[in-house]
């Protein structure tokens, strides 16, 4: 951990301004990922803007009939919210499939979206990593890749995004609300929030420097049956090899997002037309263009079978 300065922000705009002003600034909320990375000198912020005092911890109905989730709502509270459990069960299920009770008590909604990858090479500062040190190269490619991405990868990076929550939010068409230093706000659809690695894997979201997440909104409930099927090596406290967030309607239509396969929650809306025909054609369309490595090729088959399990359960 490098020495850093610290301040508590009093308003979201002030937080954004502080983070814009300081070149090496980072926001800190739950700190469940950032502090670990600072200890390993993977993250080396020179200044921390503590946003825990900003409120933003309410879940409120929107005029459109959806929900607005404050950026600082803790993962535990979000998963336990009665409205979320009733109308957006996929989100509750995704959250409780991740981390541990202790971590979920600390982790926030916005922080969860901003988690860094769990690629093991990202975690070893003696190894090149384009995410950690842009331009240094990717040591994962050609190395131990079993848990890494199969689609949307680049020559620069094959890391995955580790969040479960974000996969459900992608399936739900959530929107991220932000404020910038100048006080202007914007709404970013989940589809555009996380980026593919391309040449710049260190740039993981569409947030601008200092831009601060204030809330995530969910559209009005869409009905259907909600599933979050997380496949992993051990029964708990492990990142997904593949996860499937799905909302399936009575007529067999629905939507599907995948975790564990790409640099972002992976959803291909056009492929969802195939859902009524079954998992095989649907997943073929969703993972069209996948470029797995030798070690993670199984994920393609696994995703198809996990979706088949979900669709079977939806029928049953």
């Amino acid at each position: 951990m490098r020495p850093f300065t610290y301040e508590r922000a009093r308003t979201p705009a002030e937080a954004a301004a502080a983070a814009t002003r300081e070149p090496g600034a980072k926001f800190i909320a739950g700190g469940t990922n950032l502090l670990d990375l600072m200890k390993l000198q993977i993250e080396v912020p020179t200044h921390l803007v503590d946003v825990n005092g900003l409120g933003l911890d309410r879940i409120e109905a929107t005029p459109e009939g959806g929900l607005r989730i404050g950026a600082l709502v803790r993962n535990t509270d979000l998963a336990a919210d009665e409205r979320v459990r009733r109308d957006y069960a996929v989100l509750s299920r995704a959250i409780v499939a991740g981390a541990s009770g202790q971590i979920r008590n600390k982790a926030t909604t916005a922080g969860n979206l901003l988690q860094r990858t769990r690629c093991p090479y990202f975690y070893d500062t003696a190894q090149p990593c384009n995410k950690r040190v842009p331009g240094s190269g990717c040591s994962a490619i050609g190395g131990v890749t079993r848990a890494l991405a199969v689609i949307g990868t680049s020559e620069a990076c094959i890391a995955t995004h580790p969040s479960d929550m974000a996969v459900a939010m992608r399936a739900l068409d959530a929107t991220v609300e932000t404020v910038k230093a100048d006080g202007t706000t914007r709404r970013i659809p989940m589809a555009e929030f996380h980026r593919l690695p391309g040449e710049t894997p260190h740039i993981e979201t569409s947030l601008e420097k200092g831009e601060f997440i204030t809330a995530v909104t969910l559209p009005p409930p869409m009905g259907g049956r909600h599933f979050y099927r997380k496949v992993r090596d051990r029964a708990s406290y492990a990142f997904a090899l593949v996860s499937v967030a799905a909302v399936v309607q009575r007529d067999g239509t629905g939507r599907v997002a995948l975790g564990g396969v790409a640099h972002k929650p992976w959803r291909v809306e056009a492929a969802e037309a195939e859902l009524p025909r079954g998992a095989k054609p649907a997943m073929a369309a969703i993972l069209d263009g996948a470029k797995p490595t030798h070690d993670n090729a199984f994920k393609v088959k696994l995703a198809e079978r996990a979706l088949a399990a979900v669709l079977a359960e939806a029928r049953g």
Binding site: V231, R232, D233, A235, L302, R305, A306, A308, A309, A312
Partner: peptide, 8 residues
Amino acid sequence: DAMTGETR
């Protein structure tokens, strides 16, 4: 698990 191969 017959679908995913997870052993418990």
